[in-house]
Design a protein around this nucleic acid. Structure first.
Lengths: 121, 121, 121, 121
DNA sequence: GTGGTCTAGACCACT
DNA sequence: GTGGTCTAGACCACA
């Protein structure tokens, strides 16, 4: 097992990791992503777990499978992921963030400072 | 059950709700919080679930129990909760937020706009 | 409440405390021990708890009650307590102590050092 | 149920039993300890009781869980247990022992005799 | 198979 | 009344 948080299902973390890789450009449209067996060995997780993660990608149209050849990134992958994440970010992440900021008395200035401080990273 | 999300354990939601109540001042140091049975009836959850939620509070020193009398808010309750949440916010929430912003191409300005838009609420 | 451990019933701790006081000579045969009400106020515990503690003393013959006058230490109090404690010490405390010493790799010499170190206290 | 004392919660006795097993080397770092269901059947206690005992181990970092795979002994398990027990022994057990010895008029020599008498066992 | 959570209901000791 | 513990049995997600 390779650095998975325990508060979330591994297959979901793998699903999100794959999306991250696509957004970051590591995998482009048409690229083949690692086989189930390869990934399962590299990350030391059960093959069923990888299958389940890939299933999430397939059912959302982010990747598609070609029998006997593997899994390939779809043309619309980026758009699909971005649309989903943007909606989640604006509708769920931000409101929750603001709620926490108010409860904890953390100002927008503090957040901006952190942002600038980290941007150089 | 009374308005619990289903993506997170009830007892954890109750734990966080209790912390919110302490932060908001609804319960101050030395105050008695509702008995297990009372809360269990009010929220329509099993008593064991309440016990589990309260156990989280006890284990963190946020409340303590007096045999046969109930659960009472500790003196350092606010500090303990705030320290824990602030640490979590700065070390986990913010970095994750920034990571998402970069991946999604969302600027700090967009976040600020949302913040101002909501601040009047 | 005044410094009671939470892993043991208060009335039992009070019972043992009273025995300690008798062994140490604070209360001698025929002495009157504090009234239920007085002790309950001083230690900030429920009167029922004091009653229960005193009941333990009475049923073992360590104290006896004179109606309307209070609780008084029996003549054989010391002997009763000593016999009980000695048996407990030799049959239960020591074997358990030795078991822990073996498990933790603590030598008799270490114990003796502590004993000498503390004896001056 | 299999030989549990009744003056202490079963789950606590199981917790301490597990620690004993680790100290004695029966379970080493990385080893998988019995599954909840297995232990529950073997000891004839409810699964929830086992869960509770194991939760004590987890909360102290003595074991950790892998989703769907079981509970595994941590690398630092021995150190954690030893540190905890040694602290408890020196700070709580010994002082209490000495206090009893003084109250009961039991000398260090008597304790040593018992120790030697038992050492041959 | 595994752990994680929840319910229903019970009994006990303590206040 | 209160908290603490235990049982029996269930359902779920994960591997």
């Amino acid at each position: 097992m390779t650095d998975f948080r325990q508060d979330k299902a591994i297959y979901l973390q793998m699903y999100e990791g794959a999306c991250d890789d696509i957004l970051s450009g590591r995998y482009g449209p048409g690229d083949r992503i690692p086989s189930v067996r390869e990934l399962s060995e590299r990350l030391e997780v059960n093959t069923n777990t990888v299958v389940r993660a890939y299933d999430q990608l397939v059912r959302r149209g982010i990747v598609h499978t070609r029998r006997g050849m593997g899994y390939f990134v779809s043309e619309q992958a980026r758009e699909l992921i971005l649309a989903d994440r943007r909606r989640e970010f604006m509708d769920e992440r931000l409101p929750e963030l603001f709620r926490q900021m108010r409860l904890l008395g953390i100002s927008m200035e503090t957040v901006e400072e952190q942002w600038k401080g980290r941007s150089g990273k």
